[in-house]
Simulated scan of single mutants.
Amino acid sequence: MKLQVSDVIGPALDWAVAKAAFNCSPTDVSDDICGTWYEGENVGGVYGWGPSTNWFQCGPLLERFRLGIYQAAKWAASADGTPNYSSSFDEESCGSTAPIAVCRAIVREKLGDVVDAPENVAAAVRQ
């Protein structure tokens, strides 16, 4: 099912970030793929993968993708790394929190404005 990045939140957004950043599902995100900030959490997959709500997971992604973030009425993130009032901050990469904006910017940069998600992921958006 096709999902608009600007509408994706929660577990569906976390799924999309795993797909965009690591080309895998959240259950396959591991220490080897992500780096040492997950060390010891869960062998065989990151326990509680949720960069859209967890700065310990989102922060390193922010650095890895060299994103710029900015707060006005909403948080915005830019894949070109410019934390300012530029036109690169648009509704597609905005969110009510900085981690949501960062995650949407990563997904948008790697997968585009619309992502093709499995039905179980799409169902999480409709809840």
Rank of each mutant, 00 (worst) to 15 (best):
A123I: 04
K2A: 12
Y70H: 04
P118C: 07
E39N: 10
R126F: 01
D80S: 11
C58D: 05
C103F: 13
L3A: 13
A72R: 09
P99N: 07
A16R: 04
G81R: 01
P60M: 10
P60K: 02
L62R: 07
L61D: 09
Q4V: 05
G81Y: 10
I69D: 07
I69T: 15
A72S: 14
A16F: 03
P83L: 08
N42S: 12
S88L: 02
A117Q: 03
K2M: 03
K19I: 01
I100D: 00
G50F: 04
P99M: 06
Q71S: 14
V107A: 04
P51Y: 05
D28Y: 05
S30Q: 11
S52Q: 11
I106L: 04
A73F: 08
D113T: 08
I106H: 04
S87K: 10
A105H: 07
E91V: 01
P11I: 13
S25E: 15
I100C: 14
N54I: 11
K2T: 08
A12Q: 01
S88I: 07
D113N: 06
Q71I: 09
A76P: 00
S30I: 11
Q4Y: 00
T82A: 14
A76T: 03
Q127N: 09
Y47P: 01
L61S: 10
M1Y: 10
K19H: 14
S88C: 14
L67I: 13
P83C: 02
D90R: 03
N84V: 02
D28N: 14
N84Q: 05
V29L: 12
V125Q: 15
P60V: 08
G44I: 10
G35W: 04
L62E: 05
N54C: 14
D14K: 15
V46D: 03
P118E: 07
T53K: 03
A12G: 10
L13N: 04
A73W: 01
D31E: 13
Y38D: 04
V5N: 06
P99D: 07
P51F: 10
P118G: 00
Y70V: 01
S25W: 01
Q57K: 14
E63W: 09
C24V: 15
P60C: 11
V46E: 04
T82F: 13
R64I: 01
G50H: 13
W15P: 01
P60N: 10
Q4S: 08
P83M: 06
Y70E: 05
S6G: 02
D80Y: 06
S87H: 07
K74S: 07
E92D: 10
A72M: 05
A20P: 02
D116W: 04
D32I: 11
L3F: 02
N120H: 13
R64L: 06
D31L: 12
N23R: 10
S87R: 11
W75A: 14
S6Q: 09
A122K: 13
R104L: 12
D28P: 04
M1C: 12
L62H: 12
K2V: 03
N84K: 03
E39T: 09
Y70Q: 03
V114D: 09
Q4K: 11
V115M: 07
I100W: 06
D7W: 00
V102R: 06
L111H: 03
F22S: 12
Q127A: 06
P99E: 02
D113K: 08
S25Q: 13
C103D: 00
A105C: 06
I33Q: 14
G112P: 09
